[in-house]
Structure formats: C-alpha cells, structure tokens
Design a binder for these strands. Structure first.
Lengths: 330, 330
DNA sequence: TTGTATGCGTTATCAG
DNA sequence: CTGATAACGCATACAA
C-alpha cells in the first residue's frame, strides 16, 4: 500500500499537517517531534507524492527541455549541463525530443503546460516564431539555446559564432593560406547565415580576396557535405583550405578530399566547428572550434532560474566563448 | 489566469463534470452539448491539468526511462524507439540520465515513484541488483533493456549478442582468417562476458584453434582500445583479424593498427559491433554487427505496456536479431 | 443525459 | 508548537 502523510501521522500520534512540516523542514515544530517523525517516515520508506504536492502548492519543480535531436552529441552535452544545473537547484527536467517537427513542438509545449512546468529551455527548429510568441504570451519563463529571435525579449544562450569563425580563419591565414573555401550548412538555418557572414567578414579583415574564397551550402548531412565539397574543389582547384560549418560536415569534406586523391593537410587543410569527440578519432585529428556545450547548458539553466525568480525582468542574452583546438588537419 | 473545467462549465452553462466527460470523450452526453463544450474549450485555449487529473485518477500516463549516458548514440536510438512507442500509446516519458552512478540511480527511481510513473524502462549499470530488487518488491511494471538479471522475473529486451558474434566470426572465417583476436570491453560488464563466451564458442564451432585466437579486455574507451590493441598485435604478430566488442573500440583498434604501419583490411581485418553512424564515416568503412536499436526501444515499450496491463504475469524476455553489415574493413 | 457530492495527498491558513 | 479545516483541479459513483 501507498505510504501517505496520514499514515505516518497516525503512527506518530500527530496530524498530517505536522508531518508535512517536519518532512519539509518548514519550522514551527519541536526538534524532538521532527526527529521522531523523520525516523518513522524513513522506516516506512515514505516517498512524497509530488503530484499531490504540486497540485496544492502550485510548484511542480519541473523544467521542460525541448531538444531537436538526441542522437547528436552536440545536444547531449548541453543536456548534461542543464541536468546538473537543474539537479543542484532541486529541479527535475522533462526532456522532450522535437525532431525538428513543428507539430511535435506544439505537442511538447502543451505537455509541458499540462504538467505545469515552471520554466522551459528551448532549442527550437528553424521557424518557430509562432511557438515562441505563444510562450511569451503565456509568460512562461523561457530561455532559448543556440538560437535567438530578433524582436522578442527572450533570454538566450548561444555560442559566439562570429568569434569562433574568426579564430579559425586567423589560424588558417597564419598558416599562409590565401584561398580558403567555406562549406556551409543547411540554407534555412540561422546559424548558417551567421557563420557565413562571419566568414566573409573574417576574410575581409585578414586582407584576403573574397573572390578567392568561395563558399557552398549543403543539406547538413555527411553525404551532402561530401558531395558539395567535391564540387567545391573541382570548381576551385586552387583552394588550399576549407573551413566547415561543423565537424560532421568536415568529415564529409575529408572523404571528398581523399576521393580526389588529395591529402590532408598537405594539399588541403580542414577546420571544423563544434569539437565533437569524434574529431580526435578521425585521421588526421581535426582542427576545430570548440563550443563549451556543457557550460552552455549550465548557463541556460542559470538564466532560467533567474527568469523564474523574476530577478531580471529584462531579457538578457549570453554569447559563450569558443576556443580553437589545433590538431593535425591544418 | 488559468482556464479550468469550472470556467468552461460556467460559460457553457453546465457543470464541471459534464465538461470533463465531454473533453475525455467518455460518453453519457449529448452530441450537441459535447460539441459546444469542445468548441468553448478550444476558444479558451484550455489545457488539461494533468497534475490534478493524475491525483484523482491515479493514472499519470508517465513512463520512467533511465539511461546511463545520453551522449552515446547507441542509447539515443533506443530512446527514439521508446518515445515513439510511448507517444502512440498516449504515454509520456520521463527521461533520466544515471551516468552509471548508483546514487543517481536511486535518486532517479525515487523521483519516478514520486511522480507516480506507471512503469519504468531501465538500462541499469553493472551492479544494480538491489535496485532491481526494490523495483520488483514495489511491483512497479518494469522492463530491462540491454541487460538481464538472472534469478529475477523481470522482462527484458536485449540484442542477440551470441548470434551477432557468430555472424561476425563466420564472416571472418569465410574470408579465410584463422587467427582472430578479440578486443573485449569493460571487464565488469555482463555484455563483455556474453560476447566473450560467444566468441570462444564461435571459434570452436568454426573448427579454429582457440589458442590462436587470443583476447584482451580494455576499459571501454577509445584510448584504452588503442592501447590494448597495440599489445595484442605486438604479442601476436600472426593475427590477421580483430573482432571488437563495439564500433568505438574498433576505431581504437584502427588507430593502433595504423600506428604499427599495418593496413586495414589487407594486414588486419576489423569487425565492430553496434553499427553506429560513424562506422560509415571512418575509412575504411567498418564491417560491423548491426543492432536494431530503434526497434529495441519500441519492443521494450511494447513489453512494458503488456506488463502494465497485466496481460502477461509471466516475465518474458526478447532477444533482438542482429545483422552483419559488410563494409571495407574486412 | 446531466448534476451533486466526495476524495485523491498535500499544503496553506487559521485558530488554539 | 500543534491541530482543524479548507482548497488545489479533476474524475468517480451515484442520484436525479
């Protein structure tokens, strides 16, 4: 049978109310009785019923986390950061996978609301403005990760893409490269645009000729990266380096370069973005821009807690510093 | 303000009860009123309060899923299967990451109980017998994934490791290999034992001499695999093939083989286990034993639903069929 | 077909 | 310091 406050109260010869105060350490109780009650609760293997507790107190201690794809180690690390942050603050996360599917996203938000989450951490898909608008209208505390939406006063945490690209380009330029290609990601993604702009800007800053630094977009998959890289190097045989939107795409580039009987880094140097574990495993190990994923998760949770406590009514954004990791592909 | 049944009832000129029946399509109501109520509910943007509903109905529609590590794409696919299965049956999953940490595991179980999950899907760490015992004692419907515990009547879903290894060994033998090494995983893991036994058994079945087929264990990481493979090929220079516990370890073996200036597959063939995405990306693409991860997740969910409906009081186990994927490493 | 009364397990607000 | 009482939002049983 289920152990309830009432049961414990009966055994302890007090009322449920007193037991509740003892267990929640809410004071207004003598140390002796509290100790006795705690003892009895332990003996009876009591587990508080958070369903009931939430209903009455209107505090669920739940935070909703919506992530597009769990297979991607990129998100996995962020989630770990979020979880640790939540745990330390007595919150539990409700993790839901949207698979970049808008219908699913709406479902997930409804479920979050239905379970009375106290806040949400979102990594929304490309076009989720309406969703974000709804969240805002409902005034559910919210922090965006990886993306920001201009025109909305919603806090966000994302990598400093611009500086990351700049670090990579500077490195290549420092190595003497003057003809650098850019293998970009999915056309619809905001991040693609940001990184592309950062790339052209960095090229300009370095005094290189943009005309010598062509770029292509690919669908975002390994296979598409390989295909597009082939086009890139066949159309621009003078390229000596390729900057990639992500590590995964860099691996596609690896394949393309190899299949053209060129070598890395001697014929073409390659730089990735993300620093996933795999980057140390491939050969040659990939030079890449590291994103502090775990810390991004923690930072997001921290911001959310602030929002929830209404500490800052002003929306605040945070750009996380990237770091260039030099390995043997450059 | 929060929209409740009562609010809707007031607007519709009925009682909360009637609204409840309308929304839950529970019958005993005229089509006209139901329609009207649904309409009003939609207009008011009503979201059912599952906290309250659970408390009263004693049905949370929640299933707890405990997974050791979310970074591992192996688990990610299983989780997708679970989620899809849950979704189709009106359940939501509560996903928690144990990080193979026992304390955390206990915490997670307590949280599951606290939120009144109706069942749990567990991928427990090496030594969690006590935990499993507790679950059993509480008679919480439960299905284990990847592991089974002898002596407990708990349903499980796991890959057919024995046949998987057999498929791989047969393949190698068919290619003419007679000296096959086995790079095993973490010593404490049950799966390591199973696969090791399956390996020696397969070698015997194939008529090969076990003495020519040495095996080593490694800590389970990429680096440890590399190190142990070096030892293996240095101590047994006649080896022409290595069967690996997992794809990740196979990549460690790749590195070791390369650093010994040997080539894959000409000098040494390599077979992995799991078929993670990466296997197609490395070069040469890895021959490996595919585990139907997504379907394992679905199967586990299916079993759990059965347990929850008490359809089968008998514990049932399920071994999922593996499939050899031949690529260029053999 | 609909309404009324009751309780799920807990916490909040009083009063004692 | 402790107890009595009500309320959270919903679903169940029964009455009308």
């Amino acid at each position: 049978m289920k152990v309830t406050l009432k049961e414990i109260a009966r055994r302890a010869g007090v009322t449920a109310n007193t037991v509740s105060r003892a267990l929640n350490n809410r004071g207004g109780i003598s140390e002796a009785t509290q100790k006795r009650i705690l003892q009895i609760a332990r003996e009876m293997n009591y587990i508080p019923d958070r369903i009931a507790s939430s209903l009455r107190s209107k505090k669920s201690n739940l935070v909703g986390v919506m992530v597009p794809d769990i297979s991607n180690p990129y998100y996995a690390d962020i989630i770990r950061g979020i979880e640790d942050g939540a745990f330390e603050n007595g919150f539990q996360i409700l993790l839901s996978i949207s698979q970049e599917d808008q219908t699913r996203e709406w479902n997930i938000i409804d479920q979050f609301r239905s379970l009375r989450v106290e806040g949400v951490l979102l990594m929304p898909s490309y076009e989720s403005r309406e969703l974000i608008q709804t969240i805002a209208d409902l005034s559910i505390p919210c922090v965006l990760i990886n993306r920001r939406y201009m025109g909305y006063e919603i806090p966000f945490v994302m990598p400093d893409n611009v500086n990351g690209i700049r670090q990579a380009v500077s490195h290549l330029v420092g190595k003497g490269h003057e003809r650098i290609g850019f293998l970009n990601g999915h056309p619809g993604s905001m991040t693609s645009q940001i990184r592309y702009n950062a790339f052209t800007e960095s090229i300009r800053e370095s005094g290189l000729e943009l005309a010598q630094c062509p770029s292509v977009m690919c669908a975002g998959s390994y296979a598409s990266a390989c295909e597009k890289t082939k086009e890139l190097i066949q159309n621009h045989s003078s390229l000596t380096a390729i900057m990639c939107f992500s590590d995964l795409l860099a691996f596609g580039a690896y394949k393309a370069i190899r299949e053209n009987d060129l070598s890395i880094p001697d014929d073409i140097a390659v730089v990735g973005f993300d620093d996933i574990e795999l980057s140390t495993i491939v050969s040659p190990p990939l030079t890449t821009v590291q994103i502090p994923r775990y810390n991004m998760g923690r930072a997001a949770m921290k911001q959310l807690l602030k929002s929830m406590n209404k500490e800052s009514s002003l929306s605040s954004g945070e750009y996380m510093e990237t770091k260039l990791i030099v390995r043997n592909s450059t």
